Simulated assay, not measured.
Amino acid sequence: MLTRFFSQSKPIAFAILSILFAVAFVIENFVSTSVNLNAELIFSKLGILLVFLLVVFILNFIVKRNKIHSPHTFGVSSFTLIIIAFPELLRSSQFIVSYFFLLLAFRRILSLKTNTNIKQKIFDSGLLLSISIWFEPFHWLFLLVIYFGVIMYASQNYRHFIIPFVGLAVGFILHISYFLILEDKWINVSTYLPKFNGVDSFFDSFKYGVLLGYLILVLFWIIFQLPGIYNRAKLHESESLSVILFFMLVSIGILMTNGSPLAVDAIYLILPLSILIGNYFQLKSTKKWIKESLYVFFITGVLFSALY
């Protein structure tokens, strides 16, 4: 049933997913958590909800505009259901704003494949990444994704390898100016350094340890299906998939080295994994019962997280 419903890209599917996400967000931010309601809090939370919905929109835009997979909502629905299972992420205002700008930068890199306005797109990606770094310093590692995209789509001109630093420099100067003028202090360089806490730290929480274990199982399953996914993909699709896979590798690196709670950092794995799930679901070799079973697991994860 769910497989049939999400097998096409229809407005009703996005509307239902948006409502489902909004309900989960409201429950987590206003019902499950004790808060003193006031106009400022309500408007700030609604603003963050809008950013979350924009992240979902950008995810759908990325897969549709770059034709990463056929028109359907398998990827978006997987992302929405898995995200809801991580309630602390729904309360992470600063983090999701940072991730929003990171996705905008990632979108600009993928758009290089059109071979138009290359210099502008590379500059935009560097500038947007620098804004993301303001909120999450470890996002500077995604500069590797920008350069991977340049190598894939625009390596014919050596100047293209300089432009990302120009975009970063503009954002970095603005960031330093803010600290010096408004806070009268210098940025703390140590916040940009890796803080690997060991694999055991990912399983400090039983709930999120179980959810992470499930995501890892799904990830390994999808990795084994990559040959079939690539064989089906056209040239431009395979290039985009390669960029997404590299994006996921860098995401896993940040997940392991930034020392932040897994309950929030899980999005690093969830978003690229959702895109790959969408590609796997459209394979003719993927049985319907497998798709339905994965959706059952997603929903079970949401219920497990809500009840534990």
Rank of each mutant, 00 (worst) to 15 (best):
P194D: 08
N188H: 11
K119Q: 13
Q156F: 09
N66Q: 14
K284F: 04
V243Q: 04
A22K: 03
G278W: 05
F123D: 05
W289M: 10
K195Y: 06
F30I: 08
E40N: 15
F220E: 09
E183T: 03
L271I: 07
V145C: 06
L89Y: 08
N258G: 05
S7Q: 01
L46D: 06
M1V: 11
G253L: 14
F95N: 04
L215Q: 10
L59G: 05
N38V: 10
G213P: 02
L241Q: 01
T3G: 15
D204N: 14
S240K: 07
V26K: 02
S238P: 07
L46M: 13
G167Y: 00
I19L: 10
L303N: 00
F43T: 15
H160A: 06
Q156P: 01
G167E: 01
F220I: 15
R232V: 06
E239S: 13
S155D: 11
L303T: 12
A233L: 12
I96N: 02
A13T: 06
T3N: 15
I173D: 09
L50M: 13
S7L: 09
E239C: 07
L182G: 00
Y192G: 00
V150W: 04
H139A: 11
P71F: 11
L54E: 03
L141V: 09
S305G: 10
M256V: 14
F138H: 05
G126A: 10
F246M: 03
V210T: 14
I131Y: 02
K185D: 01
R4N: 14
S274P: 03
Q120W: 11
G209Y: 06
V23S: 02
D184S: 14
F161I: 02
G126Y: 05
L90H: 06
L276S: 00
F21G: 04
F100E: 01
F224M: 15
S7T: 03
F101L: 10
T33V: 15
S77Y: 02
N66T: 09
W186L: 14
S251R: 03
I187G: 04
T33H: 14
S18V: 05
F30E: 07
L53D: 04
L271H: 01
F57I: 06
I122V: 08
L103G: 05
A233Y: 02
I244P: 03
Y153T: 10
L103Y: 03
L17C: 06
L127T: 08
F203C: 11
L41D: 05
